[in-house]
């Protein structure tokens, strides 16, 4: 149990996918302008990360590894995740149209999000069991959520500031992102010693 909590917390804070591993930067910069779209995107990412792990972990463990096809990991994962997201979209459109509408364009966008591929591959590399892998995915998704919500707050503050002309737009956003990610450095080493 302690291990699961450590995995969850370290996925959220220490190995935050956006701010420490620098995966999923595209949506981080692209849809963090408004809080509601940032929340929508993050919820979709959490959902897809969990679904993708649930699908790819068995494929790796029971299909690729026993047959010595571990080197096909990346391409098979991309294939499976893309198909999975499409399937989820079809199902949502049919049965939960309101959720489909609120996730909107984010769901298909996530298909090729490197954070999703990253979490599935790292789950395998770390040698997690299925439960651990799912917890790690949840933590990674929550970490993404945290980073997005935090950064949308930072950006809404940026809107009202008088930025030098050369820095307007994306440059100042990148500078702000760098400073935000620095703040997450402070978490290093905290979680491991939490339960010691």
């Amino acid at each position: 149990m302690t291990k699961l909590i450590i995995i969850l917390l370290s996925a959220v804070f220490i190995n935050n996918y956006v701010l420490s591993r620098f995966l999923g930067i595209c949506p981080f910069l692209g849809v963090s302008k408004k809080l509601d779209s940032a929340t929508g995107m993050s919820l979709a990412v959490i959902f897809v990360m969990l679904m993708a792990t649930a699908a790819t972990w068995p494929i790796q463990t029971y299909l690729l590894d026993p047959n010595g096809l571990g080197y096909l990991q990346t391409i098979v994962f991309i294939l499976v995740i893309a198909a999975l997201v499409q399937l989820v979209e079809i199902v949502l459109k049919r049965y939960i149209p309101s959720l489909h509408k609120s996730l909107g364009v984010y769901l298909p966008l996530i298909t090729t999000n490197c954070a999703v591929l990253g979490v599935t591959i790292l789950n395998i590399d770390e040698g997690y069991t299925f439960i651990e892998a799912m917890v790690n995915s949840l933590g990674s998704g929550l970490g993404f959520f945290l980073a997005m919500v935090m950064f949308s707050g930072v950006r809404s503050k940026l809107e009202g500031t008088d930025v030098p002309k050369n820095f307007k737009g994306l440059p100042i956003t990148l500078v702000a992102a760098a400073i935000t990610s620095l703040s997450f450095l402070g978490f290093g080493g905290v979680i491991e010693n939490l339960f010691a």
């Binding site: 299909l63 098979v76 399937l87 079809i90």
Partner: peptide, 26 residues
């Protein structure tokens, strides 16, 4: 040995998607 499994997985995924889009068409 590399191509065939990927093709099989791809075909399965495609089949599932086709069936799903037919069955659950809105």
């Amino acid at each position: 040995t590399a191509v065939i499994p990927v093709v099989i997985i791809g075909v399965i995924c495609a089949a599932v998607l086709v069936i799903a889009s037919k069955v659950m068409a809105v």
